[in-house]
């Protein structure tokens, strides 16, 4: 969860309750529609109108820039993108900028690189964090406290302050300028380990005890009983690992030097640096980079929100 939620939470204890109640009170948009307000009070009409006016104003501020970028990327060659007053919608729209950007930088290869990095990061985080989280939550052994301390300390180290040492290490391992080198430092996020630990420790003991009596060993209890019970947290870990890897900029910028191996974010920066004056192309490139995440977000929205509250509280 590099870009969003790596900062340590100062008070893990009291926030937890917030999170639980928040889940219950979370919006179930469609089901609620037309059923009145959740708190049973009706708003006067003028307040409702004022509320919607404000909502629409903020909407324009938050979404408008993306739409403007989309519009720029679709404008035809005959259109003046600098026209005054600004032309909000493309008149003679075309996909030209998208094929154009692919001619200048290998944007689809970059997208594939980003996808590779993101998927690898999801898999390693799911596996590493759930294994470690399970051991920390459920197994009794000497050194458990020490292991926990290692993860907490790792979480407290700001990534930005160790980036040069990470780069030196990658060079020594011969992994600079490789996608493996991009994935490795975030392969098992310490915060994900703590999230998984928290999820496992909230499971009731009884089921696992029954399995223990039946002779299931620790791997079987982990794989067949515990893991299927924490699917929600697994989804949160997966989504945030994907987003962090897909969006990450500073680390890939440092570790990748050969333009062939760039991820999308570094590639876009390169495009911007080299062809800054061709706004249509830059716009097309940014749209290519952002659309997959927006689609993912639209489909899995509640896990994103859940991740924010869990991450902020635990993180």
């Amino acid at each position: 969860m590099r870009p969003t939620a790596t900062a340590p939470a100062p008070h893990a204890g009291d926030g937890h309750r917030d999170e639980e109640t928040a889940h219950r009170a979370r919006p179930r948009g469609r089901r609620r529609r037309g059923a009145g307000f959740s708190d049973g009070r009706k708003l006067p009409v003028w307040q409702l109108l004022l509320r919607y006016a404000l909502l629409l104003a903020v909407l324009a501020l938050m979404i408008g820039p993306f739409l403007w970028q989309l519009s720029t990327s679709l404008k035809g060659p005959g259109e003046d993108i600098y026209s005054y007053p600004p032309q909000l919608l493309p008149e003679d729209w075309t996909w030209d900028a998208y094929s154009g950007v692919a001619r200048i930088i290998p944007v689809w290869d970059y997208a594939l690189n980003s996808l590779t990095v993101a998927v690898a990061s999801v898999l390693t985080n799911l596996l590493g964090a759930s294994l470690a989280g399970y051991a920390l939550a459920r197994l009794r052994f000497r050194g458990r406290k020490a292991a926990l301390v290692v993860f907490v300390m790792a979480m407290l180290v700001p990534l930005e302050s160790i980036i040069i040492a990470q780069f030196t290490l990658m060079r020594e391992l011969g992994l600079n300028n490789t996608l493996t080198g991009v994935v490795l430092p975030g392969a098992v996020g310490a915060m994900n380990v703590l999230l998984m630990r928290n999820a496992f420790s909230h499971l009731p003991y009884e089921v696992e005890e029954a399995a223990l009596v039946d002779g299931a060993n620790v791997w079987q209890r982990f794989w067949r009983i515990a893991l299927p019970s924490v699917k929600g947290t697994l989804a949160v870990v997966a989504i945030f690992a994907f987003m962090a890897a897909w969006d990450d900029f500073l680390w890939p910028l440092i570790v990748l030097s050969d333009p062939d191996n760039f991820t999308l974010t570094v590639g876009l920066n390169y495009l911007h640096g080299t062809f800054a004056d061709n706004q249509r192309l830059v716009a097309a490139g940014t749209i290519i980079a952002v659309v997959p995440l927006i689609v993912m977000f639209a489909c899995l929205q509640r896990y994103f929100f859940r991740g924010v509250s869990e991450g902020a509280v635990k993180g």
Partner: peptide
């Protein structure tokens, strides 16, 4: 408040968080 359409607004306001800093920076 759960006024109609609020889920849409909440999601829309969250969109810049989802986008990469490079994307929003260039925008």
């Amino acid at each position: 408040r759960h006024v109609p359409g609020i889920t849409f607004f909440r999601s829309a306001f969250y969109t810049p968080v989802v986008a990469s800093v490079v994307v929003v920076g260039l925008i």
